Amino acid sequence: MLPFHLAFHYLLYSLRSVKLHGVHSPFIFDLNNQVIRHDGHFAAYDTVESLRNELLQDSRELQVTDFGAGPKAGTKKTRQVREIAKTSAKPAKYGQLLFRIVNHFQPKVIFDLGTSLGITTCYQAEACKKAAVYTFEGCPNIAKVAQENFAKLGLKQVQTVIGNLDETLALQIEKVDKLDYVFFDGNHRYEPTMRYFKQCMEKHHEGSVFVIDDLYWSPEMKRAWEEIKKHPKVLQTVDLFYVGLVFFRTTQPKEDFTLYY
């Protein structure tokens, strides 16, 4: 069951969302039809979900440092791998959505801000084997398990950047010419989210795709989403409740869409 604040926002989202027939932008119409609502099956789904099932049975204990949001940020505690897999990984529905987005746009450079055990990273990397994938994880012990998972799936193009995202992101941005695709799942507070967004904007281009995770996780994330939509270089956004898509296409009018998913 959803927490009350999420349930309330989901009700509002359901009331304002539209289905395919209500979309008049050709770009968003095609995206909705071919990517968001696509109901076909890819072999990568089975590969990654098999990995998830293994992790859900993994009783290894890790000393974990939390760099995320909330009162426990910065603290250390022991957690089992299976607990992390159960609570931190994106559900299959959204991992597979990210797979389809990457598969559709075929970005050359991918930034994945928030590795955890690497399940979501694997979905995105499986979708574009030729991409350079940089995934960011604060905790070295969690990163080690993620790297094992990348090796298990043969995802040699994934590079794990370990350390506090407040320090590692800017350094890595300097090393790339442009950012084609960014998944923001590194911190669920307003200030860090906006800072990471603005840093990544330095290397965005018209064809870039930014995906913002957990839009309504907290009042701070909702505030960040509203501010991102108002950014002068952001021209199209799609609210899918749990994730938001951001585009910069100057050939399309500035519009915000809320689509049922």
Score class of each variant (00 low, 15 high):
3 P>W: 09
62 L>P: 07
174 E>L: 11
184 F>S: 04
25 S>T: 12
185 D>K: 04
28 I>T: 10
111 F>W: 03
6 L>G: 00
234 V>F: 09
196 Y>E: 01
73 A>K: 14
205 H>Y: 09
10 Y>M: 07
124 Q>T: 15
81 V>P: 06
47 T>I: 13
158 V>Q: 09
192 P>M: 08
104 H>C: 07
259 L>V: 15
119 I>M: 07
91 P>Q: 11
24 H>W: 12
43 A>N: 12
26 P>T: 04
219 P>H: 03
35 V>T: 15
201 M>Q: 11
254 K>H: 08
129 K>H: 14
148 E>P: 06
47 T>K: 15
207 G>S: 10
65 T>Y: 09
162 I>L: 09
241 F>T: 09
201 M>W: 06
154 G>Y: 03
38 H>S: 13
220 E>D: 15
201 M>E: 12
178 K>V: 11
158 V>I: 15
144 K>G: 02
39 D>Q: 14
161 V>Y: 03
54 E>W: 01
211 V>L: 11
7 A>H: 01
259 L>C: 08
257 F>V: 13
54 E>N: 07
106 Q>Y: 01
45 Y>N: 07
78 T>F: 08
261 Y>K: 15
175 K>Y: 07
175 K>E: 14
236 Q>M: 14
128 C>D: 12
115 T>F: 04
218 S>A: 10
242 Y>C: 05
163 G>D: 12
184 F>T: 04
10 Y>P: 00
143 A>C: 06
27 F>S: 02
140 P>V: 02
89 A>Q: 13
79 R>H: 12
247 F>V: 11
15 L>E: 01
256 D>T: 12
9 H>Y: 13
35 V>S: 01
204 H>T: 11
83 E>F: 06
152 K>H: 14
151 A>F: 01
144 K>I: 03
203 K>M: 09
25 S>H: 05
165 L>I: 13
246 V>L: 10
197 F>S: 10
52 R>G: 01
194 M>W: 10
143 A>W: 09
144 K>F: 11
182 V>K: 04
73 A>M: 05
137 E>P: 08
93 K>T: 08
35 V>K: 01
236 Q>V: 14
180 D>V: 02
35 V>Y: 02
40 G>Q: 08
81 V>I: 14
230 K>N: 10
131 A>R: 09
181 Y>T: 03
224 A>K: 05
181 Y>H: 10
63 Q>E: 14
22 G>H: 12
155 L>D: 12
62 L>V: 04
169 L>G: 10
240 L>C: 05
250 T>F: 00
180 D>K: 00
171 L>M: 08
11 L>T: 12
143 A>L: 06
203 K>G: 02
226 E>D: 14
181 Y>M: 05
127 A>C: 09
247 F>G: 02
83 E>Q: 12
135 T>W: 04
186 G>N: 10
